[in-house]
Design a binder for these strands. Structure first.
Length: 609
RNA sequence: GCGCCGCUAGCUCAAUUGGAUAGAGCAUCGGUCUACGGAACCGAAGGUUUCAGGUUCGAAUCCUGAGCGGCGUACCA
């Protein structure tokens, strides 16, 4: 006997999984092994889902694919879910979901509980994990620039998705707060702001970028200053109290700059810079020098004066091994050392079983080597997943590396400001043409512009495949139509307006509101709504935000058709009551799905725009 | 030199990882409509998936080679 809770769970298994389960069972009964290969049908005319398993099986069995498909269909008990399956082409099994089943499915989704807690009936993961996500991680020596956008936005999205599924997520901001350049910066700071020694908390630096340039300029010009800078590095490394205080004041001020941006973007982060791992550096070296790999060979050895780890799979064809240098010939450490130290901390202290680095693709090889070294040293067992979630670069509209006209880096703040300014133009312009009763107040326009501007940047970034570079184009990302944030936000605002106009508070729709699916546009919308869990599951499994954006676009389009004058249905003035209620419920579900989906992308919705 | 990644419609990008006639959105052209937010909807056109071979029932996807572009390749991060 199935308990009510289990029954609820069963009812909410994504359709795709349900089909997979059913077909899998039949395959088992027939003594067939393999994946049922259930896919969303790519062409509506074939149905809603299809199974592609028959062709592969036929080959193995030496039978005709269509016969295999027929024997599966023959034994399949599935009439509660869909129309009789059709066999087509070389041996596809096509499924069309029954409207009644969709209605049942949507009915089980209860009205939204506490705002922000809406799960749309999706269960958390069965086995929650401790996950570290390494994201953003700017260098504190300078201002944040375009190069930090993707890591921050993608990383935040990944965190939100993992958190939604109930995992414990450490959002690690592994900022660059250590290294030789800080000697120079601290020395410079001490000269131009001597008061920092006594009042470190009051330090304010308007522009970190020009501060860095000043320091660098002096470093290149002034022999005496160069010497001082190097001494400062030594002082930092030996933990000299005054030097540390100035250094910390600088880092804190730089972090305040960063967090202004994070706050604006709605990104929450845990700052834990490289310097936090200083004490672990020697431990890394100690372990590497004393430990042995699985074959009993030393983990590290000296080469050309540097301490290196050599690993299988990282050598040239000539047989030259590619080293991972963990101690330079001058005795200093480098980023490989600190990355290894950080990994030890994350595995042994945070007890993470999954560590995800959201860092650009150019560093792919570096992470492969770091991971390989960690495995070789035995610090990460098989149960620990180490992943590099790489992404392509942001290019300008001409496809060149994103730079200012003068060739400098573009500050992230300037980029956000420009997006908001352009969004304001769009919002103002559209407001004048709007059919709403009241136009927006200046204050509303400001708020809307801020949300739309930032949302546009995020959405545009997330809607691209992680793997590829993309061209940053304000005009495209702020377009009211197409796969953009403004279109999505508009769709949401429009649905919410329906509720207001109908005099219905969506949250107060009866829990047992009927769902009636009759019209083709209702069917399409219902099917799309029911697919949210599987789209989200794919996005989560493969850590691919653009799967989610694609789905949301699909949903928006399905809604627009549903609400269309010609091809859609009436909603507010629909009758009888049962039908009206059902359509309002579809509106409610659309709004909630958009809100939840956009929320997981890190995008705020607007009730009105 | 070696390695990794990319090349898909005029443009910007997808393609659930080997499935049916390769899909969207811009832009273009045409259509719907006294209207629940038209900031909409429908349709047309647009392709030898860089090229050449191969693997198989079936390839944008896998293999081999070539071309173009980007990145990495011993002490920056």
């Amino acid at each position: 006997m199935v308990s009510p809770i289990e029954r609820r769970k069963v009812a909410l298994i994504p359709i795709q999984d349900e089909l997979s389960l059913r077909v899998g069972k039949v395959m088992e009964a027939l003594g067939l092994e393999g994946d049922p290969l259930i896919r969303v049908a790519q062409d509506e005319q074939f149905g809603d889902y299809q199974s592609n398993c028959a062709m592969g099986l036929a080959k193995k069995l030496g039978r005709k694919p269509r016969d295999v498909a027929a024997s599966i269909v023959d034994k399949l008990q599935i009439d509660d879910l869909c129309e009789p399956p059709q066999i087509a082409g070389p041996g596809f099994i096509n499924f069309r979901i029954k409207p009644g089943h969709l209605a049942e499915r949507l009915k089980t989704i209860r009205p939204a509980p506490v705002p922000g807690r809406d799960r749309l009936g999706i269960d958390p993961a069965d086995h929650p994990e401790v996950v570290v996500v390494d994201l953003s991680s700017p260098n504190l020596a300078k201002e944040m620039h375009v190069g930090h956008l993707r890591s921050t936005v993608i990383g935040d999205c990944v965190c939100r998705i993992l958190e939604f599924f109930g995992h414990t997520v450490y959002r690690e901001n592994h900022v660059g707060d250590w290294g030789t350049q800080f000697g120079m910066l601290v020395a410079h700071l001490r000269h131009v702001r001597p008061e920092v020694v006594n009042e470190p908390d009051k330090l304010e630096i308007q522009d970190l970028e020009s501060f860095y340039v000043e320091a660098k300029e002096r470093f290149d010009r002034d022999e005496e200053f160069r010497k001082e800078s190097r001494q400062t590095v030594v002082a930092l490394q030996s933990g000299d109290e005054t030097t540390m205080r100035i250094w910390k004041a600088f880092c804190d001020e730089s972090l305040r700059h960063c967090h202004k941006i994070y706050d604006r973007l709605g990104v929450r982060l845990l700052d834990r810079g490289e310097s936090c791992y200083n004490d672990l550096m020697n431990e890394v070296i100690r372990r590497l020098e004393q430990g042995a790999d699985a074959d009993g060979n030393p983990l590290a050895r000296e080469s050309e004066g540097a301490l290196c780890v050599f690993m299988d799979g990282f050598k040239t064809r000539e047989g030259e091994w590619l080293p991972l240098i963990v101690r330079k010939s001058d005795g200093g450490f480098n980023y490989a050392t600190s990355d290894l130290a950080t990994l030890i901390h994350r595995i042994e202290e945070l007890e993470a079983t999954r560590i995800i680095y959201v860092v650009g693709l150019p560093q792919k090889q570096h992470f492969e080597m770091i991971f390989a070294a960690t495995r070789k040293a035995g610090w990460a067992g098989d149960h620990i997943r180490l992943e590099h979630l790489g992404f392509g670069s942001v290019l300008d509209a001409a496809g060149r590396p994103f730079k200012t006209r003068e060739g400098g880096t573009v500050k992230l703040k300037d980029l956000l400001d420009e997006a908001v300014a352009r969004a304001r133009e769009v919002v103002t312009q559209e407001d004048e043409h709007s059919k709403r009763d009241q136009s927006l107040s200046p204050k509303q326009i400001d708020e809307i512009a801020e949300t739309v501007g930032l949302a546009s940047i995020k959405y545009y970034d997330l809607s691209h495949n992680l793997n590829s570079d993309y061209r940053f184009d304000f005009k495209q990302m702020l377009d009211m139509e197409g796969n953009t944030a403004p279109y999505m936000l508009y769709a949401y605002a429009r649905v919410k307006a329906i509720g207001r106009k109908a005099g219905v508070v969506f949250e107060e729709l009866p829990a047992d509101a009927p769902v009636v699916i009759e019209h083709p546009s209702e069917l399409r919308l219902a099917l799309t709504l029911a697919r949210f869990p599987e789209a989200l599951a794919v996005a989560a499994r493969e850590l691919r935000p653009n799967v989610l954006t694609d789905y949301l676009l699909e949903l928006s389009k399905a809604f627009s058709r549903f609400y269309d004058r010609k091809l859609g249905v009436r909603v507010i003035d629909a009758s009888p009551d049962e039908v009206r209620l059902s359509r309002l419920k579809l509106c409610d579900l659309t709004a909630r799905t958009l809100k939840l989906g956009l929320g997981l992308l890190g995008i705020e919705t607007l009730e009105q725009m």
